[in-house]
Design a protein around this nucleic acid. Structure first.
Lengths: 234, 234
DNA sequence: GTTGTCATAGACCATGTGGTCTATATCCGT
DNA sequence: ACGGATATAGACCACATGGTCTATGACAAC
């Protein structure tokens, strides 16, 4: 007969508010399935403790004075220790949530949330899932969609988008321009003369209302040409 | 005394599966707070019905043969009628969820989910919220973070990134190059001679291992220079 | 104090780039 | 059959761009 001891998960807490830190530790200790291996009131100390104790998960406060939580997430992930980060915050700031999730937080919970929900979040994250409470994911998505709104609008509205005026051939030429290829290079790739390429390029400039290839390339990239990439400010 | 009649919300259903269509209609009718103003088995017909009945919300199946659901969302949003779209799908395809949310779906629910959850989702969306069930938001976030992983890794690792070899002044020059400015323009902006700009630019080319400004600009953009923008494939 | 890096700048030259104009062949729609 | 859009291409020109070499003053490092 094989008896399985469920190994307690190692948790590390980072929060500049010491009372809160102790409060969570108590909560997790009472819960019984967690082992709080360390607490820290700033990121630097926290990083050292992480290296030392290799916790399964770190609860990281986002709003700290010295080094901000986002930077903390990045530095923890740089350790390459598959330590998961659950972000903690007092506010449901959409921008902060977005950025935290973007750089790899496995979840984000508010300090005001019920302790049961915190426990649940930790367990979900430990199970390899990503956990964002409904209220926060809703905020996240508003922000997320907002980020795309202008871009999408610009790209979807065929009016306005000067790229739509380009002919098939002109698009091919522009695509090669966006790879930083010279007239001669384009001519060779398309099996046409260099002069023809120049003619196409000039027409492209006219249509995109730009003066040189760099501007044309920038316009193309910023307006959804090519691999259809869209930007999000970090 | 003022009596308020809660106005029923107008709902429109689009799904190529007729049985499913009727099933949902029945469900919503029984619920009583919804008024199913129309059903359609394809997007084209659906669009006309939307124009005609101006529903508050459209339940749109993502997996349809003729015109796919994503396109449907785009076309509905192009109508500019603040009709909200709740995406419906049989599968929890992360890519599909991601793209649907990106282009503005207010929610995404699986056909296999309990009818109570569907009702709840509709109500949330009608209340102006964005609703993504936990299971799906989890999938979404995996995909979302995955999209950023390579980019982030590339940008965070200061080794490898040739941009880090640039001096302060060279970065300034490069930044201006990425705006499509000529040598002369850069010289004026930085109050230095055109020759100096050329020297800087040449040094930049050396460091970035490229041959011309277009390539330099492309390198800069693709490696997190500038406004720190990050790409997501659509 | 010598070495190194950086920002500055001039000279010279080859070539790439952009502007303009003209011209032909093809294809499409009517 | 004709006009319009498109792809092709030549000629000519002005100038922007890129390559290379040299040089100087400032400043930091050691």
């Amino acid at each position: 007969m094989r008896r399985e001891f469920k190994k307690k998960s190692k948790v590390l807490l980072i929060d500049d508010n010491y009372e809160h830190l102790v409060g969570i530790r108590e909560l997790l200790n009472i819960e019984g399935t967690f082992d709080v291996v360390g607490i820290a009131t700033n990121v630097s100390v926290g990083l050292n403790l992480i290296k030392k104790y290799q916790p399964d998960i770190v609860l990281l406060d986002m709003n700290m004075p010295d080094k901000d939580g986002l930077q903390g997430i990045i530095e923890i992930s740089k350790l390459n220790m598959d330590t998961k980060v659950l972000a903690l915050s007092g506010y449901d700031d959409a921008d902060l949530i977005f950025r935290a999730m973007k750089i790899g937080a496995k979840g984000y919970v508010l300090k005001t949330m019920a302790s049961a929900q915190l426990i649940y979040a930790i367990e979900e994250v430990l199970n390899g899932k990503i956990y964002l409470p409904l209220a926060l994911s809703s905020r996240f998505f508003e922000y997320f969609q907002q980020s795309f709104r202008e871009e999408t609008a610009k790209q979807e509205s065929d009016e306005e988008n000067l790229l739509s005026y380009l002919t098939q051939r002109e698009e091919e030429v522009l695509e090669l321009l966006t790879q930083g290829i010279t007239y001669k290079g384009v001519a060779n790739k398309l099996f046409i003369s260099e002069t023809t390429v120049k003619t196409h390029v000039n027409n492209i400039f006219q249509k995109l209302q730009v003066n040189d290839r760099t501007q044309a390339v920038l316009y193309a990239i910023n307006n959804g040409f090519l691999t259809k990439k869209v930007k999000i400010a970090v």
